Measured scan of single mutants.
Amino acid sequence: NTKMVRFKKGDSVGLRLAGGNDVGIFVAGIQEGTSAEQEGLQEGDQILKVNTQDFRGLVREDAVLYLLEIPKGEMVTILAQSRADVYRDILACGR
């Protein structure tokens, strides 16, 4: 149940992230009207890879910085997997 989305970065990627470290990086929110939303990313999706950067094992701050450093107008390719069950557990633990 993995999906790959590809879009051109606007002012931002339009994602709020949660998790990090051993639990993985998850989409915690999506800005309305962004390409990330239009391409089908959803809250609870685990981000496995962005462009050439493996997101598994990253701390959340490093994942956020990586997304911020992608220049506006560059193509962004995100490999994600729907993991809403794991995401709910992360929220319940306050991570």
Results as ranks from 00 to 15, higher is better:
Asn1Cys: 12
Asn1Phe: 09
Thr2Glu: 06
Met4Gly: 00
Arg6Pro: 00
Arg6Gly: 00
Arg6Glu: 08
Phe7Met: 03
Phe7Leu: 04
Lys8Trp: 08
Lys9Pro: 02
Lys9Asp: 03
Lys9His: 01
Lys9Gly: 06
Lys9Ala: 01
Asp11Leu: 03
Ser12Asp: 14
Ser12Lys: 12
Ser12Ala: 08
Ser12Cys: 10
Ser12Asn: 13
Ser12Trp: 03
Val13Gln: 03
Val13Asn: 02
Val13Arg: 05
Gly14His: 09
Gly14Met: 08
Leu15Ile: 15
Arg16Ala: 10
Arg16Ile: 13
Arg16Phe: 07
Leu17Met: 07
Leu17Val: 04
Ala18Ile: 15
Ala18Lys: 07
Ala18Gln: 09
Gly19Lys: 05
Gly19Ser: 04
Gly19Asn: 02
Gly20Tyr: 04
Asn21Cys: 14
Asp22Asn: 08
Val23Thr: 12
Val23Asn: 11
Gly24Pro: 10
Gly24Phe: 00
Ile25Cys: 08
Ile25Phe: 05
Ile25Lys: 01
Val27Arg: 02
Val27Tyr: 01
Val27Gly: 02
Ala28Asn: 01
Gly29Ile: 02
Gly29Tyr: 07
Gln31Lys: 09
Gln31Tyr: 06
Gln31Gly: 11
Glu32Met: 06
Glu32Asn: 10
Gly33Cys: 06
Gly33Thr: 01
Thr34Phe: 10
Ser35Gly: 13
Ala36Asp: 03
Ala36Arg: 06
Glu37Phe: 13
Gln38Glu: 13
Glu39His: 14
Glu39Ile: 15
Glu39Tyr: 14
Glu39Leu: 13
Gly40Ser: 03
Gly40Asp: 08
Leu41Phe: 03
Gln42Ile: 09
Gln42Gly: 00
Gln42Glu: 14
Gln42Trp: 01
Glu43His: 06
Glu43Tyr: 09
Glu43Gln: 08
Asp45His: 02
Asp45Lys: 05
Asp45Ala: 01
Asp45Pro: 01
Gln46Val: 07
Gln46Leu: 11
Ile47Met: 00
Ile47Cys: 01
Leu48Ser: 05
Leu48Val: 04
Leu48Cys: 00
Lys49Asn: 08
Val50Thr: 01
Val50Asp: 09
Val50Tyr: 00
Asn51Ser: 05
Thr52Trp: 02
Asp54Cys: 06
Asp54Gln: 03
Asp54Arg: 04
Asp54Asn: 05
Asp54Trp: 01
Phe55Ile: 06
Phe55Lys: 09
Phe55Asp: 02
Arg56Ala: 09
Arg56Asn: 11
Arg56Phe: 04
Gly57His: 12
Leu58Trp: 06
Leu58Asp: 04
Leu58Gln: 02
Leu58Arg: 03
Leu58Thr: 01
Val59Leu: 13
Arg60Ile: 15
Arg60Lys: 14
Glu61Ile: 02
Glu61Cys: 06
Glu61Val: 01
Glu61Asn: 08
Asp62Gln: 13
Ala63Lys: 08
Ala63Arg: 04
Val64Trp: 14
Val64Tyr: 15
Val64Arg: 11
Val64His: 09
Leu65Tyr: 09
Tyr66Asp: 00
Tyr66Glu: 06
Tyr66Cys: 08
Leu67Tyr: 01
Leu68Gly: 14
Leu68Ile: 12
Glu69Trp: 03
Ile70Ala: 03
Ile70Tyr: 00
Pro71Tyr: 08
Pro71Glu: 07
Lys72Ile: 11
Lys72Arg: 11
Lys72Gly: 04
Lys72Phe: 04
Lys72Gln: 11
Lys72Val: 05
Lys72Tyr: 10
Gly73Ser: 05
Glu74Tyr: 05
Met75Ile: 09
Val76Phe: 03
Val76Arg: 03
Val76Thr: 04
Thr77Pro: 02
Ile78Gln: 08
Leu79Gln: 13
Leu79Val: 14
Ala80Lys: 01
Ala80Trp: 01
Ala80Gly: 05
Ala80His: 05
Gln81Gly: 05
Ser82Tyr: 01
Arg83Phe: 05
Arg83Ala: 10
Arg83Gly: 06
Ala84Asp: 10
Asp85Lys: 10
Asp85Phe: 06
Asp85Cys: 07
Asp85Ile: 08
Asp85Ala: 11
Asp85Glu: 12
Val86His: 14
Val86Thr: 11
Tyr87Trp: 13
Tyr87Asp: 10
Arg88Glu: 13
Asp89Met: 07
Asp89Pro: 09
Asp89Asn: 14
Asp89Ile: 00
Ile90Ala: 11
Ile90Gln: 13
Ile90Gly: 11
Ile90Val: 14
Leu91Gln: 13
Leu91Ala: 12
Ala92Glu: 13
Ala92Arg: 13
Cys93Glu: 15
Cys93Asp: 14
Cys93Gln: 15
Cys93Ala: 14
Cys93Ser: 14
Gly94Ile: 00
Gly94Val: 05
Gly94His: 12
